[in-house]
């Protein structure tokens, strides 16, 4: 792996900061109520809570899929709630998101799926080939580079999704139920990867309702219940 510690432009700024964040869909009830949180750039956290607690909703605020109904979300010191649309792509490029449903592009090969963030960032094709090939071998998919996601197993898809999320060396990794589709062994390898990436300086949030997984690692935990967030060491 050629992951290296990235230079941090906002040396002091926390990776994530929530100021009185609340979220409701349309005119529905508040799913998230008055969340306040500060995560330093090198933190790693579990985000726990029962199904329907709002874990995915909270992550979606962080990967800029929607704005909060109230309050402010700040990433790397930038208030993304107020930020001009044009500034968002640069912030999104610092994020690596592993979606619960992967969201791989079915019309692209494994290689092209993983290469997409680099292509969008305008990286040279030779560099892309080198990086993507190396990363895919590392997650054990070197023989499936030209395969379309549709024919991959759940666990293989997940590894493609992870490779795509980390290929541009993000400073904040958001993983939504990343071990949901994989067996224990791959789940453990995945966790090792997150720990490694965190050691290299990335802030990591792993949403899960898998208590078994949580109990095996002693990361601090953010738990969501009744729309409120509680930090547990």
């Amino acid at each position: 792996m050629t992951l290296s510690r990235k230079e941090k432009p906002d040396e002091e700024a926390p990776a994530v900061q929530l100021d009185s964040v609340a979220l409701r869909y349309e005119q529905g009830p508040f799913i998230l109520k008055d969340l306040n949180l500060v995560l330093p750039a090198d933190s790693i956290r579990f985000l726990t809570g029962p199904s329907g607690a709002g874990k995915t909703s909270l992550l979606s605020l962080l990967y800029l899929a929607q704005r909060p109904s109230l309050g402010a979300v700040k990433l790397f010191g930038t208030d993304v709630t107020a930020a001009n649309r044009g500034r968002l792509p640069a912030i999104r490029r610092k994020l690596g998101v592993i979606f619960q449903d992967f969201r791989l592009l079915d019309h692209l090969s494994t290689f092209d799926n993983v290469a997409l963030p680099l292509r969008i960032a305008g990286i040279a094709e030779t560099e892309i080939k080198e990086n993507v090939t190396e990363l895919l071998s590392w997650v054990g998919l070197e023989d499936l580079m030209e395969t379309r996601p549709a024919v991959l197993s759940g666990g293989q898809k997940q590894r493609v999704a992870i490779a795509r999320a980390v290929v541009n060396r993000p400073q904040l990794i958001l993983a939504d139920e990343p071990t949901g589709n994989v067996d224990d062994e791959i789940g453990m390898r995945l966790m090792q990867l997150f720990i490694e990436l965190n050691r290299l300086g990335a802030c990591i949030i792993i949403a899960t309702h898998n208590e078994h997984l949580v109990s095996r690692f002693d990361f601090p935990r953010l738990s969501l219940a009744d729309g409120c967030l509680e930090e547990q060491a």
């Binding site: 490029r93 997409l116 963030p117 969008i120």
Partner: peptide
């Protein structure tokens, strides 16, 4: 829509 959402999430500009 879903494909474009993915483009967005990984930092694609509108121009892209």
């Amino acid at each position: 829509k879903d494909i474009i959402a993915v483009f967005h999430f990984i930092g694609a500009q509108d121009m892209y």
